[in-house]
C-alpha cells in the first residue's frame, strides 16, 4: 500500500513513457483548475470535458504501457471516478444558483404571481425571471428561468405551455441524474430532439395544443 513506492515503480516500468504520461496528468489537472475559474459556462463545460478526456487518456495509457503491478492503475481510476462524480454532481446541484447570480434573476412570483403557483402543481421548482428583451426560457437544476422579453410576448395560455415544457425537463432531470452523469462521462449526449418532443407532448396535455403551437410559432426555438 505504499503509494510513493508504487509511483516510483511505475516510473521504472513505464521507462521512456513516464514523462509522456505524467504530462497528460499535469494537463488534466491544469484543465480542471481552469474550468473551475472560467466565467463563461459554455467554455467552462468544454474545458471540463477536455480535462476528463486527458485524465482518462492518461489512466488508459498508464494501464497499457506498464509491465508490472497493476495496483496504481486501479488507484488512479478510482480517484478519477471519485473526483469527476463530485465535480459533476456539484455542477448539476449548483448550476441554477450560478445562473441566478449571473442573470441577476428574481422570483417570477413577485412579478406574475400565478407562474410560481402553476409550476408548483406540476413539479417542485422555482420560477425566476431575468432582465432581457430577448424572449428565452430554460430549465437548470431545480429552477426555471424566463426572460421579461418572453413575458412581454406571450399571453397567459402560451406562457403556461412554456412553463409546462420546462417543468417536464425538471421532472425528467431529477429522475435520472445518474444516467445523465453517465452520458456525460461517456461523452455521449442524450438524444435531445426526442426529449424536446416529450416535453412538448407534456406541455400540450397541460396547456392545450393551441397554446403550445401558438407559443412555438411566436418564439420558435427560444424555449429549450
Amino acid at each position: 500500500m505504499n503509494i510513493l513506492g508504487e509511483i516510483s515503480c511505475y516510473g521504472q516500468c513505464l521507462k521512456s513513457w513516464a514523462l509522456f504520461v505524467s504530462l497528460f496528468f499535469v494537463m488534466s489537472i491544469a484543465l480542471i483548475t481552469a474550468s473551475l475559474m472560467l466565467k463563461d459556462p459554455k467554455k467552462r463545460l468544454q474545458t471540463f470535458v477536455f480535462a476528463q478526456a486527458t485524465g482518462l487518456f492518461a489512466v488508459a495509457a498508464t494501464f497499457y504501457l506498464m509491465n508490472c503491478s497493476e495496483m496504481l492503475s486501479l488507484y488512479l481510476y478510482f480517484a478519477y471516478v471519485a473526483i469527476s462524480t463530485i465535480l459533476i454532481f456539484g455542477t448539476l446541484r449548483y448550476y441554477d444558483r450560478l445562473m441566478i447570480k449571473r442573470l441577476e434573476a428574481k422570483p417570477a412570483g413577485s412579478i406574475l404571481k400565478w407562474t410560481q403557483e402553476f409550476v408548483d402543481k406540476l413539479t417542485s421548482a422555482r420560477v425566476y425571471y431575468f432582465d432581457s428583451a430577448v424572449p428565452k426560457a430554460f430549465a437548470a437544476g431545480r429552477s426555471i428561468f424566463i426572460s421579461i422579453g418572453l413575458l412581454e410576448l406571450l399571453d397567459e395560455d402560451e406562457l403556461k405551455a412554456v412553463l409546462a415544457h420546462e417543468a417536464w425537463h425538471i421532472r425528467h432531470n431529477s429522475g435520472m441524474p445518474f444516467l445523465s452523469q453517465l452520458a456525460l462521462m461517456a461523452f455521449s449526449s442524450s438524444s435531445e430532439p426526442e426529449l424536446e418532443d416529450q416535453a412538448d407532448r407534456f406541455a400540450a396535455k397541460i396547456a392545450g395544443n393551441t397554446a403550445l403551437y401558438s407559443a412555438r410559432n411566436k418564439v420558435d426555438k427560444v424555449f429549450i
Binding site: 406574475l112 400565478w114 428583451a133 421579461i148 422579453g149 413575458l151 412581454e152
Partner: peptide
C-alpha cells in the same frame, strides 16, 4: 433605460 410595468397580468418594458 427601461423599466418593467405589470398591467392587467401582462408584463412589459
Amino acid at each position: 433605460t427601461r423599466r418593467t410595468e405589470s398591467i392587467n397580468g401582462r408584463v412589459r418594458y
